[in-house]
Design a protein around this nucleic acid. Structure first.
Lengths: 237, 237
DNA sequence: GGCAAACAAGAATACAGATTCTTTTTTATT
DNA sequence: AATAAAAAAGAATCTGTATTCTTGTTTGCC
């Protein structure tokens, strides 16, 4: 249903970097996630991580609701008992997937989109790098987790707060970089447009995440290029 | 969780027209929907329609998965038996909601966005009317049905084909109207940009449908205005 | 190497919610 | 008004899946 699609569609300059989000299977769980019990043995950590990695991959093939606990255990070669000694319930497990995803992506974001590396670049360059980053994220191995996260807001009052933080950070870097690139324009206007740009990009990519039938898609370069054109035009390039 | 929000946020010029999608509760089921059994008594039709109307409203308050058949029966004052003499299963019921939604919106689209009424209008006017139409649709009483439809693609090989047709129709009207407004530009370029415009609008609105925390939102005029600015800029206005 | 705590296995349970079934009522037609 | 077909009620079932529980095993520490 939801084919996994990495590589191939990455823009040349982003390819080597995006590898990290797709090949690394290191599980980050620095925070203690609510509902995820501390593992005190090496074996437990290994099993927990195998649950998480299998979960990440599985969500590229099916919806969360169709991924049963029994299924997950079979796929990862563990028992139901093992699952429940590690996770309070299925929801807590998904929370772990989200945290893992955030941490992995955060790493990528910081590496590829920061004030230092963008300093001195033209507006067009900055915008293109933003689009590349976002498209790479939304076509990474975390695509399925992202889809389920955006679609299935578990906690109404905390709809994935860390993701929002990450988004705010990106926007703020964008705003600063474009302020430098457009020294003559009013900062307020730049800031507003940056926010909207970001929202347009996220909207288009989320749309692509859920629907398969659009003309512009991440299956080829069309959405990536279209977004670059559109937001450059919007920014007055 | 998902508050119902109509009126108030409609742009003045669209207000009177958008009323129709929000106040009319006429149920259109001209096609025979698979899994929806023909009703041969007036009473059956009335009950079927009450199921549908209650379903439409309920999805503005909760997710489809949280709307149980028993719940639906209670809300509409009917019995479980009545439900199942009308609908083969819950999925068929949702299919009926979709068809009803499509038909209602189709009506609105044809009335507000057609070649005749757009002929002779400036590009900006056309684009603004497009945004108004789309925002009105996504903030109508069918908001919940739209959300569930987009999120929960039931049939992988038929992801809501009628909606796609409707979208294609809108795009084609847009293309024709803008070709007239920009007689000097290459048609191919106009067509491509029209498609992308539409996709951007849908993306932003779908995003707004699922997430509540964006800066630009349909809760006020910000998303509507932002979209107008953005796509006008993209089109070179 | 022995011991207690931590853990894994997987069969058994619990449960929610869709669906069916039987009985009773209503409709529409003559 | 009689009658048969259609439909409504709602209690009873059935099912899929999350979760728990019991038993046996492994780990890490001394």
């Amino acid at each position: 249903m939801f084919a996994i699609r990495f590589a191939a569609q990455l823009s040349p300059q982003a390819e080597h970097k995006a590898q990290s989000i797709n090949t690394t299977t290191t599980v980050f769980l620095t925070d203690n996630v609510p509902g995820v019990f501390a593992a005190r043995q090496k074996r437990s950590i290994r099993i927990r991580d195998s649950f998480i990695n299998v979960g990440v991959e599985a969500l590229n093939e099916c919806r969360l609701k169709d991924l049963t606990v029994a299924d997950l255990c079979q796929r990862s070669g563990n028992s139901v008992g093992a699952f429940y000694t590690r996770f309070q319930d299925k929801e807590a497990f998904f929370r772990a997937l989200r945290v893992n995803t955030i941490e992995s992506l955060e790493y990528e974001v910081i590496a590829r989109f920061n004030r230092e590396s963008l300093a001195g670049q033209s507006a067009r360059e900055v915008l293109e790098q933003l689009v590349d980053l976002m498209v790479d994220i939304f076509t990474s191995r975390f695509r399925g987790v992202l889809r389920e996260s955006l679609v299935l807001i578990l906690e109404p009052n905390d709809p994935w707060a860390p993701m929002r933080e990450s988004a705010l950070k990106i926007v703020s870097v964008l705003q600063e970089s474009l302020s430098q690139a457009y020294p003559d324009r009013p900062v307020t206007q730049i800031n507003t447009r940056c926010r909207f740009c970001f929202q347009l990009i996220v909207g288009a990519l989320q749309n692509d995440l859920v629907n398969d039938y659009h003309v512009f898609t991440t299956k080829d370069q069309s959405l990536r290029n279209g977004l670059k054109d559109a937001i450059c035009a919007y920014m007055g390039e």
